[in-house]
Design a protein around this nucleic acid. Structure first.
Lengths: 360, 360
DNA sequence: CTGTTAGCGCTTTCAA
DNA sequence: TTGAAAGCGCTAACAG
């Protein structure tokens, strides 16, 4: 195996910042270097790709003097390897694809941030895109990423994307799923124990002695959402609440604000004591509406948030919430993907449940 | 010119989801299609790349029947174009690179979101990475993106990156700058009128009759930050405040929380009436600390935020703030980049100032 | 309208 | 220790 990041990359860096950086001729290739150094292009390639193998030997044996000369010329000419050629030749792009529903959502932003760092450390770069929970857009993104030759996908799928993802696997590109699950899809899926997490969220309100508790959720039927609803329902039932009394308000993903304007006054009007939210975006929109109505958070009405958000700690007392350990989720997801790419494991259904973190 | 997005892409989509999707042989190439359809590879290429030109004619004239046949075979074989080969051949990757300081920051998340959408509409995909305000990391990112063959950069540079960016231009890759400026760098730079925006922010507090106003800022000397400080200072001076009385607290970018813990109590202790913030992250951290101290926002102390954030509207009355019109910034930046790529304009210094939006 | 062909820049046998 | 050469899959002249 040897090191995964070829020394080429580091040579690249030093070359690039070489003190000899002249007005550079547009595209310097190994051919130019070969000519200048008076060697063959193969030798230049050897020099650029040389590295220590697992057994401690060098991959290619190159004369020290010639190696120095080649490197010197490469620096002087400001050589930069052409990745398209390398990809074409080797079939490896060192690019991964990340698809979330909305990169501007803090939760996914943090996901992106964590994955990006991990990827960078391993010499990968990341293509990213937001699906907006639209299967059609998701499909188009997958396709364009595939055309770009990504070596692997990390995705937050939306409903109606099973077929596309199956295709991804068919063309031999590995895939890891985040935040959603589907028993019929053969991939590692890193998901929160949504049922348990929402039960914990409800528990927080129950412990305060509150009775009239309602939930605000999405209309979308992503497994993360339905799991949280299931947790809410099961815990409320255990509390002896009849099914007719258990209320879940479902708002459209793409138009939270105006639907919040309708739902919140109705909730307040009915004298609800506590609200649990399926996501941070829902909590934020609701808090905004509540504030504007003059309802005092955690006094007139108790809230419990979901996911992590700066917002929860902005109040006093802070709004309790059940968060996701994003770093753990990401490092797990990334290590699965890497093992998949390296063919150390098979692409099979494997649902990994992560416990929510209760902040109370 | 014709359409920028080749019909190939759309063909690709339908191919991919073809009902004939069999267990696919790994890599179907135009050669396979040519063999199967009994035509030459060139003809297959023509079919795949055919499009309507600007003059209304087709780029290639292909017999209808053969075109149908080729498309049918391509579908059946589940053909997917190999972008590495195309990039190698055409020197165009249809990939752009985005570098911000931290993608998990809402402001940059929204930037990413907007740009990604624009890019997608034009058939581009986006590589992204966060620099963490580290010139070294920035450099490495630029290099790896360059190796990946990006056609253009949109960057939020940090201090110490001028040289790298100059190199980018030297290798002929266009670049547009966001959120920062540097008169010596020949690129379009889309920046907020930071001085004016911060003057407006101070104005909001002044109008309320407040006198003791201080600013919380960063230690980093990015032009966006220094511009906002300049605005603060100039407006305070106009108000007749002596330079010794004008206080700006500068916190380290990578450790806001613990420094907030020190600064906020001191501010409160001195009876400061109003605080303006250089960024949303600073405002959020400070509000958190203030809340936990039991200080009532907009009652005991008045705040004015910067940038947009969900957080500002969470209070009642809402926290006034001066925001950036992100969609405008992004569409400007993107159109400049596209013109640069298409060589419609030259790569020269061009600072475009955008006015802040006052929310009061 | 269709086929032939010459590479794009690189890696990797195989020979020398 | 080095060189020659065969492609990776695709596009775009150029010929027919």
């Amino acid at each position: 195996m040897g090191r995964d990041v070829p020394s080429l990359f580091f040579i690249g860096i030093s070359l690039f910042f070489s003190q000899f950086c002249l007005a550079m001729s547009k595209n310097v290739t190994i051919k130019d270097i070969a000519a200048e150094a008076g060697v063959s292009i193969a030798l230049v390639s050897f020099v650029m790709n040389n590295r220590v193998e697992a057994d401690g030997k060098m991959k290619y044996r190159v004369n020290d003097a010639t190696r120095e000369r080649v490197i010197e010329v490469a620096k002087r000419l400001n050589y930069m390897p052409n990745s398209a050629a390398r990809i074409l030749r080797k079939g490896k792009s060192k690019v991964l694809g990340l698809i979330v529903s909305d990169i501007s959502n803090v939760f996914y932003g943090e996901i992106a941030r964590n994955l990006e760092t991990l990827a960078f450390e391993q010499g990968y770069t990341m293509l990213f895109a937001s699906s907006d929970e639209s299967p059609e857009k998701f499909r188009q993104i997958v396709l364009s990423f595939l055309e770009k030759g990504v070596e692997g996908f990390i995705v937050v799928p939306c409903t109606g994307t099973l077929k596309v993802l199956q295709q991804v696997l068919n063309v031999g590109v590995p895939c890891v799923v985040l935040d959603r699950k589907n028993e019929r899809f053969p991939a590692p899926m890193i998901v929160l124990d949504n049922v348990g997490a929402m039960r914990s969220a409800v528990e927080i309100l129950l412990k305060k002695g509150l009775k009239k508790i309602e939930m605000i959720s999405y209309t979308i039927r992503a497994t993360s959402i339905t799991g949280r609803e299931e947790g809410f329902i099961s815990r409320m039932r255990e509390q002896g609440i009849s099914d007719e009394q258990i209320r879940i308000h479902r708002l459209p993903f793409d138009d939270i604000d105006s639907s919040t304007d309708l739902v919140i006054p109705s909730i307040v009007g009915r004298g609800v004591e506590g609200i649990v939210f399926a996501t941070n975006a829902l909590a934020i929109a609701s808090i905004r509406k509540l504030s504007s109505m003059g309802v005092r958070i955690q006094k007139d009405i108790y809230l419990v948030g979901f996911d992590n958000s700066d917002v929860y700690d902005l109040f006093y007392p802070p709004i309790p919430h059940v968060g996701q350990p994003i770093d753990k989720i990401c490092s797990l997801a990334f290590s699965y993907l890497q093992k998949l790419i390296d063919k150390e494991i098979e692409q099979t259904t494997k649902i990994v449940y992560i416990s929510g973190e209760v902040f109370d």
